[in-house]
């Protein structure tokens, strides 16, 4: 006698073998059972009803191929990777007056203490320099931000806004150095600034999601 449950188990195994699992598989199984009910109600005998239902669901390989197209990122992963790479490299390159990038970053971290040292006279310059630390932190956090928010275009505006802010800070600093101390600037500083530009562009240069209809062609 035809065993529906055993047949469904076998069908699930086929699905699992191609990588369709979890909730999508549960949903497909639910669909299969609905279709089975319909076929049986139409008067087909059990084995034929099952065969028809499976056929109606479609070829496993094609379904898997379509599921694999899901999860489009709305940011450019390659460009972001280049930005992160450049950011890291910039820390080991000569950046300013012979100092390495990491030394400059160290200066920006300690800059706030200069403010307090000069208090109450204060020094907005030290606050500005310290803000570069925040910009670096945004860069370090950006992989998590982009992965977390990057799949929904509307949500992406928050990391994009943060990265833009960080980029503006960084380039206002680099710009000022170019104007006043251009001879002391070295490649690491440009690489550092460029990494923020690339990261910002990565949030705009979207990897276009494949057309919803691509699977039909």
């Amino acid at each position: 006698m035809f065993n529906f449950e055993q047949s469904i188990v076998e069908w699930r195994k086929q699905m699992l073998a191609t990588g369709i699992k979890g909730l999508p598989l549960e949903e497909l199984e639910s669909h299969l059972r609905e279709e089975l009910d319909l076929q049986m109600h139409a008067g087909l005998d059990a084995p034929l009803a099952f065969a028809m239902a499976v056929k109606q669901i479609g070829k496993v390989g094609k379904i898997k191929a379509e599921f694999s197209k899901i999860a489009p990122d709305h940011w450019n992963y390659s460009l972001a990777r280049m930005a992160w790479g450049l950011f890291l490299i910039s820390f080991f390159l000569p950046a300013y007056a012979g100092g390495r990038g990491w030394q400059c970053a160290g200066l920006s971290i300690t800059a706030l203490s200069w403010y307090w040292a000069d208090f109450p006279r204060g020094s907005w310059g030290s606050i500005f320099l310290f803000s570069l630390t925040l910009a670096n932190l945004v860069m370090l956090a950006s992989p998590f931000l982009l992965v977390g928010f990057g799949q929904k275009p509307r949500a992406l505006k928050w990391p994009r806004f943060l990265i833009l802010g960080a980029g503006v800070l960084v380039w206002s600093y680099v710009g000022e150095l170019i104007i006043h101390d251009a001879h002391d600037l070295e490649i690491g500083c440009y690489a550092w600034g460029l990494s923020f530009l690339l990261l910002y562009f990565s949030t705009w240069m979207l990897r276009a999601p494949k057309s919803l209809g691509a699977q039909y062609v």
Partner: peptide, 17 residues
């Protein structure tokens, strides 16, 4: 429709909000 192919479409539309 080839039924199984609807679900990737639904999931993608869900992902797109």
């Amino acid at each position: 429709w080839t039924d199984g192919m609807l679900y990737p479409v639904l999931h993608r539309m869900e992902r797109r909000g």
